[in-house]
Amino acid sequence: MSIILSNVSKTFDGTKRETLSDISLNIEDGEFICVVGPSGCGKSTMLNLIAGLDRPTSGTISVDGREVTGPGADRVVMFQEAALYPWLTVIQNVRLGMKFIGISNDEQERRAMHYLKMVHLWDFKDYSVHEISGGMKQRTSLARSLCMESDILLMDEPFSALDKQTTNKLREELTSIWSETGKTIFFITHSIEEAVYLADKIIVLSDNPGTIKKVVENDLPRPRHIEDADFISLRKNLLSYVRKEVDKVEKDEYDTK
């Protein structure tokens, strides 16, 4: 499913500055998009708008030709925090979303097993949420999102709290799921390396107000390796754009003090 943002702006109540200003973007069916930019540039706001958790101040967002008016299971969100329900076990958390959308018990069972095994949590399926580590919580949350098998997956820095090894593993898994299923993935990250590793298209946001500064097509062949010369040069290239932005933000913050 394609996502189209046309002239989207967002100003939060009680603030004068636009958080997002006049964003227009076409995300094609099956694309893997990464959004990078300095913190506070409106990356998460953009995701919340597409998710339907928030409404744009002006402009429209449409998914598959229909305007977004609220959240829905066709655009599953994976948040930065795991946000599991503490009264449920790992597997109950994973199955809950499927229960919401009326998937049969057998199918729930099958998908839960498939994705929990993928994130290496099958042995922990009957654990309580407070009995597992932060990384395991985040993996549970990933399994919960993937179980929904939605056409669009919105991910808000999902791996930022994980250790390097787990992160690498999950990036690989995510890329293979994406290439198998042809999902559209909208992925926010502050790691340039992550963006270069994952995305077809990398969007650099600038701050104050949040606008699209640059769209970089990433044609590096997959599977990608972070040591390859092409990988490194694209990464450096991107880093220079983002660095300018970060410097600008820091300068602004300094000036207003």
Binding site: A51, G52, L53, G70, P71, G72, A73, R75, V76, V77, F79, A83, Y85, L96, G97, F100, I101, R144, M148, L154
Partner: peptide, 9 residues
């Protein structure tokens, strides 16, 4: 809790 539930449909 509510946000997650809503986005899960």
């Amino acid at each position: 809790y509510i946000k997650v539930a809503r986005t899960l449909g």
